[in-house]
């Protein structure tokens, strides 16, 4: 569990705070999406939640972040990097090895996992992500989606309770992006891993996450279940965030009084809504 209490952070060389007075808590087993315009502080928030800010990035940090009760300012990164893992935005630069197997071994070796267990974890994590066949492959020969899975596997092998991902689908096409989100959902549901994902692709967020946090100029604009907060369509648009077209459609139909259900987030939900409105047999 992560609790952020009135967090404000300003990078050393910047003239404005990147995060302004943010208070939130992320419960175990949650699947949280963080979105906002470019420069809204998404990445900074993610890094504040796992202690990279203020340890690796210098600046003025106010308030507190506690990971399972441990204050990130008082503890060193090594104390909580076993609990929380982050997959970074730049897929290529975070890799440390040239072969998939070595990439996953890196963290396991560093944390001093007993050698008997390393083998088991290595094979299990490859199995969990459905990539046992990539084990001996050169990372440079993999596709974007495959690389992303390897990056996730390398973190998951360390068995963190919380996984933070910074725009993991930035360079992937829609189909591979959905595949990654599907994988994260599976990890969340089957293994109970808490997922915090930064993402601009609002359609994907709406379809997959349980909770959506929207940032605006470093401050918390919305925090709630996607179906509920997306209904503030006008505000979303002024913040510079588009909502899924089907959500806007359900909003319009609700406005005109022909529909009184919730905001629809996917095409399937919208189809159900339209049939309901038109009294079609389902």
């Amino acid at each position: 569990m992560i609790v952020a209490d009135h967090v404000t952070f300003q990078y050393a060389e910047s003239s404005e705070p990147a995060l302004r007075d943010i208070s939130l808590s992320i419960d175990d087993g949650d699947f949280v999406g963080i979105t906002g315009t470019s420069g809204a502080g998404k990445s900074t928030l993610a890094m504040a939640l796992n202690g990279i800010v203020p340890h690796e990035w210098k600046g003025d940090f106010y308030g507190s972040v506690k990971i399972d009760g441990m204050d990130t300012v008082e503890h060193q990164t090594e104390d909580f990097c076993r609990k929380i893992g982050e997959v970074f935005q730049d897929i290529d630069s975070q890799m440390v090895a040239s072969v998939v197997e070595d990439e996953i071994l890196f963290g396991l070796e560093n944390f001093g996992v007993p050698h008997g267990e390393i083998k088991i974890r290595l094979e299990k994590v490859l199995e969990d992500l459905g990539i046992p066949d990539l084990r001996k492959r050169e990372i440079s020969s993999l596709s974007g989606g495959q690389k992303q899975k390897v990056a996730i596997a390398a973190i998951l092998a360390l068995e963190p309770r919380i996984l933070v991902l910074d725009e993991p689908t930035g360079e992937l096409d829609p189909e591979s992006s959905r595949e990654i989100f599907g994988l994260l959902r599976k990890l969340n549901e089957e293994k109970g891993i808490t997922i915090v994902i930064i993402e601009q692709k609002i359609k994907l967020l709406c379809e997959y996450v349980k909770r959506l946090i929207v940032l605006d100029k470093g401050a918390l604009a919305f925090d709630g279940v996607p179906g509920e907060i997306i209904s503030h369509i006008e505000t979303f648009k002024t913040l510079g965030i588009n909502v899924p077209p089907v959500a806007e459609l359900s909003y319009l139909l609700r406005q005109s009084g022909v529909y009184d259900g919730g905001i629809t987030l996917t095409v399937q939900e919208a189809e159900k809504m339209v049939r309901e409105v038109l009294h079609d047999p389902v």
Binding site: N50, C81, E86, S93, V96, F106, E109, F111, A154, L158
Partner: peptide
């Protein structure tokens, strides 16, 4: 510079500084 920086942070988050000579699996 960006790449080197993100590479360093990523290695650090995966316990780079905890490593000892005995850590090696192979």
């Amino acid at each position: 510079l960006e790449k080197v920086n993100s590479s360093a942070i990523s290695a650090e988050m995966r316990g780079f500084h905890l490593r000892t000579r005995q850590s090696g699996y192979k």
